[in-house]
Structures are given as C-alpha cells and as structure tokens.
Simulated assay, not measured.
Amino acid sequence: MKKLFKVALVAGCLFFAGNVAQAQSKIGHIAFNQLIDQMPDTKNVQKQIQDYQKTFVDQLTALNNELQANAQGYDAKKATMTDAARTAKEAELQDQNKRLQDFQAKAQQQVSDKTQQLSKPLLDKARAAVQAVAKEKGYAYVLDTTNQDLIVSPEADNMMAAVKARLGLK
C-alpha cells in the first residue's frame, strides 16, 4: 500500500511538473520597423514612393500657382468690377480652390495606396523571416517593440540578430 502511494505521488508530481513546464511559453521581441529599415529593398521602395509622390507635388504646385495668380488678378481688379463680374470671379476662384483640394485628397489616397502596394512584399518577407525564426527557436509569442508601448512585459529574447541572419543582413 505504501509502495502504491509513493508511485501515485511520484506520478502526480511528474504530471504537475509537466503541466507547469508546458504552461510557460517562450516570448521573443523585435523592433520590426528597425528591421524593415535595415533591409536593402527599403531604399528602393522609398525612392519609388518619392518619385511617385513628386508627380503629384508638381501638379499641385502648378494648380496652386494658377490659383494664386487668379486670386491676385481678382484682387487687383475687384474695385473696378461690376457686382455680377465680381460674383462670377469669386465663384470661379472657389471652384478652382475646391478642385485643388479634391486633387490633393485624391493624390494623398493614391500615394497611400501605392505605398501599401510597394511595401507589402517587403513586409511579407520580414514577417516570414520572423515567423520562421520564431518557429525554429520555439517562440510562442513575438512582440514588436518599435513603439515601446509595453509598460510591463515578461522577460523575452531579442530576435533581431537571428532574423537579420535569416534575411542575410549584417
């Protein structure tokens, strides 16, 4: 009976110890934006986005210069204009200003869409590398420490070196 009790006690302790060991998950962290910045493709993507954005900036500058010239011409002639001509010119300037604002909003949306389109393969590549390293090293969770939003967190391993090695970065 004592022997059976000891065996049951040992079995219970092993079972409990196994559950405690299983409950502890490995946690890693990485500054994801820093990783992206260090990837060589990032410069190429940023250059493409800047070039795309420049086309809109040039058009916006031309539209704005045209609006300013029309507004200055209106200000210079407004005292000699009839009420009907003044009202028509003001409506024209308001319409031109609205077109400028609409174009600016559309340009911002198109640049945002292009940024997402060009950045997606880069982000996917980095995420895949982080996931592969996490799986390889047995991490259950990987936290992004870019924004330092965590006030208190459990001790974790920095995965930056392993992910950079996986991506072939120095």
Rank of each mutant, 00 (worst) to 15 (best):
L4R: 08
L4H: 11
K6G: 00
V10F: 12
F16K: 10
V20T: 12
V20P: 03
Q24T: 11
Q24I: 14
G28K: 00
H29E: 13
A31D: 15
A31T: 09
A31F: 07
F32A: 09
Q38S: 12
Q38M: 04
M39P: 00
D41G: 05
T42Y: 10
N44E: 13
Q48V: 02
Q48F: 03
Q50F: 05
D51P: 03
K54A: 15
F56M: 00
V57F: 08
D58L: 11
T61M: 08
A62M: 11
N65W: 02
L67W: 07
Q68E: 10
A69P: 00
A79G: 07
A79T: 09
T80V: 08
T82A: 09
A84R: 02
A84F: 06
A85Y: 04
A85L: 06
E90Q: 14
A91F: 06
Q94M: 10
Q96E: 11
Q96W: 03
Q96I: 01
A105L: 09
A107D: 02
Q109T: 13
S112D: 13
K114P: 02
K114H: 01
T115N: 14
T115R: 15
Q117G: 00
Q117L: 07
S119R: 08
S119W: 03
P121E: 03
P121Q: 05
L123G: 03
D124H: 05
D124C: 08
K125N: 04
A128L: 09
A129C: 09
A129G: 08
A132F: 00
A132T: 07
K135L: 07
G138P: 11
Y139S: 05
L143G: 07
D149F: 08
L150M: 12
L150G: 09
I151W: 13
V152T: 10
D157G: 04
N158L: 10
N158C: 05
M159S: 05
M159V: 15
M160Y: 12
V163S: 06
A165D: 09
R166Y: 08
K170G: 11
